[in-house]
Design a binder for these strands. Structure first.
Lengths: 167, 167
DNA sequence: TTATAAGTTGTATTGTTAATATATCTTTAA
DNA sequence: TTAAAGATATATTAACAATACAACTTATAA
């Protein structure tokens, strides 16, 4: 189970822009930074623009920047905008109602509730929260195992000179 | 964003078995009922057997049945067993640590928490909760659309009996 | 003891769609 | 008026879920 890289990259673009607040970034620069397809990114940026997350400026000297401050960009809103469906199982799709259990099955409601729980957790965080490396645990939920999933990513010896830290 | 049909079908198999508690069902019968690939179902049933959800009996007169009563089969446990990963974004995969934001990015923790919220919701339900006690025969005969499932997951209304029965 | 009905296992193929690539636009500041 | 930037449309590739095929093992009824 996963989010599409489309949404993943959209998130990265916003994070990148949040780190360069005082100038226009451009697509080539961002695709180079993340080492991902520029062509793919073009579409993502376009959608980010049409959904009101970034401001794009054509022409020489143009580029892109956040359309709102990071505190006003909600992660849940972003994910809902970029993922093109949340059909957890077949019967969520109005065009695919083939399951013979349909009328009497309680599964759909359960999965819908679970999906909502997922998105509501994302609704509790803004771009500012994730860019700073802190998530609003106190807002979202207090149980917070917090870093029970730490086994894999913590290494990663940060190439240090990485990005231009919010010059 | 979706669950694989592999997991979807596993759920359906368990629901079917919950509806036929007094006899051995078999794979052909189930694949016919749902009109899905028997060969695909074979693998699913095998995994359901090896994970302890169903009891399979070879040989003439054999078949499959639930290994535990429906009240003891947890939906979250099932989904965790059948989905082969929960790598919400690239950096969850230990073999794909390519994102240059990794060390300072709070996104992973947020998504992990959201994923946990999703699964915890499923952990709160058993097979008995989602199977409404209708027999496959009755379901087959009704066949009418009449689903009353509004097509999107917005409906919610959280039937309040979210029941985390025992376990 | 044998024929058959069942699940088991491994591999190959297909289909879908996300991801990527190519090409040609339009816009705009210098 | 040119170069740099995003916009748009279409085509191709690649990954992988889904499906199909084939041969196996096991168990039991006759």
């Amino acid at each position: 189970m996963q989010i599409t890289s489309y949404t993943d990259y959209a998130l990265r673009v916003l994070l990148y822009l949040a780190m360069t607040p005082n100038r226009q970034a451009n697509i080539t620069e961002i695709s180079d930074f993340f080492n991902i397809s520029r062509n793919h990114l073009v579409k993502i940026v376009h959608q980010l623009g049409s959904k009101g997350f970034v401001k794009t400026t054509r022409g020489k000297g143009g580029g892109l920047s956040l359309q709102r401050p990071p505190e006003m960009i909600n992660i849940g809103e972003l994910v809902r905008s970029m993922e093109n469906h949340f059909n957890w199982v077949e019967c969520f799709d109005p065009t695919q109602q083939n399951c013979r259990l349909l009328p009497a099955c309680g599964l759909k409601q359960l999965l819908a509730r679970a999906g909502d729980a997922y998105l509501q957790m994302l609704d509790a965080a803004t771009l500012a929260d994730v860019a700073l490396g802190t998530t609003p645990v106190e807002v979202a939920q207090s149980e917070a195992p917090a870093t029970a999933h730490s086994e894999c990513n913590q290494n990663q010896s940060l190439t240090t000179e990485t990005q231009e830290n919010n010059l």
